[in-house]
């Protein structure tokens, strides 16, 4: 015969308290560990921030965080790179290229993605495989032929080689990203539009594109970050210093060939240059995470 179990309420409360305390202790330990790791990871960044705010001569003399003497001189001298070349010009150049690259990628990649994701045409899968294959081509293979091509059509030392390919669905990664997203949209929505007499363009523009906002935001953010940080293409195609962009200009603070380097100016301008990327990321964080989560790029 089974006997009914009896529980001492005091013992139960004590057990609950013990488990709660243990849970809190584990949580505290985990947080302390994460904070410790965060400090290790952020140390160089924080050191750079404070280094940008101390006189150039003291940067390597004091490895502590807080400067003895505070100054904004590094920002002033860094902004004025040399002669009449200032970072104002470099930012304008960078932002123009970034803005056009984003527009180009959003328009062209979404169109190409719509075709691959929603339309049926002969050779679709072969073309899709070829498109994916282009992602695996190293930049070094394309560099010289591309340069000679752009040189022959007179585009070198203009922003056109950096921008026009974006309007021709040049970034296979973003096409693939949007294809994945568009495939997940219900077919019924588009079929309803077909019943209403919508043509391809209307279905793309009025149905698919508005529903693809998370994927578009992801594309916009990554295009901005990639273009803003792109060093080599901008070095090769924009040779005149007046057309120089931020990543190329940042390299001009250090001189490993034996000349004088300016670490103060470098740290100050690196700090400033992080701003747009951080701002763009924060502004679109919600859409970005949603976009990534819905496309399986976890």
């Amino acid at each position: 015969m089974a006997t009914a179990k009896t529980y001492d309420p005091e013992l139960l409360r004590a057990e609950r308290r013990r488990r709660e305390n243990l849970r809190r202790l584990k949580g505290l330990g985990l947080h302390l560990l994460l904070i410790g790791l965060l400090c290790i990871m952020l140390y160089p960044v924080i050191w750079m921030v404070f280094s940008a705010l101390r006189p150039e001569a003291e940067i390597f003399g004091d490895m502590g965080f807080i400067p003895t003497n505070w100054t904004l001189d590094n920002f002033v001298r860094g902004w004025q790179l040399y002669g009449n070349m200032t970072f104002t010009q470099f930012y304008v150049n960078s932002f123009i290229i970034c803005a056009l690259a984003i527009v180009g990628n959003l328009i062209a990649c979404s169109m190409a993605a719509y075709a691959f994701a929603r339309l049926e045409f002969r050779g679709k899968w072969i073309l899709f495989a070829v498109m994916l294959g282009t992602m695996m081509l190293p930049i070094h293979v394309q560099l010289i032929p591309q340069y000679i091509f752009f040189l022959n059509i007179g585009w070198v030392n203009t922003i056109l080689p950096l921008v026009v390919p974006k309007f021709l669905a040049h970034d296979a990664f973003f096409i693939f990203l949007m294809v994945q997203f568009m495939r997940s949209l219900p077919n019924e929505l588009e079929q309803a539009a077909v019943v209403d007499g919508a043509n391809y363009w209307q279905r793309y523009w009025r149905i698919i594109l508005p529903l693809s906002m998370p994927a578009l935001a992801t594309t916009a953010v990554f295009t901005f970050i990639n273009t803003y940080n792109d060093f080599f293409s901008q070095l090769i195609y924009l040779t005149d210093t007046s057309r120089m962009t931020v990543p190329v200009a940042l390299r001009l603070f250090l001189d490993p060939s034996g000349g004088a380097s300016s670490f103060g100016g470098l740290f100050a301008m690196v700090l400033v240059s992080i701003g747009p990327v951080l701002g763009f990321f924060l502004a679109s964080q919600r859409l970005l995470t949603k976009g990534i989560a819905t496309q399986g790029f976890k």
Binding site: L143, I144, Y147, I148, L151, N152, V156, F231, F232, L235, I236, T239, D240, T241, S242, V248, R251, L252, L254, D255, P256, S257
Partner: peptide
């Protein structure tokens, strides 16, 4: 005079590419 400057290592990379297209300064 159009100015074209770069860091030491990228300078040679760029010059090499420019030379392939006969577009040296």
């Amino acid at each position: 005079i159009t100015r074209e400057t770069a860091d030491f290592a990228p300078y040679w990379e760029r010059l090499t590419i420019q030379s392939t297209g006969n577009n040296q300064p």
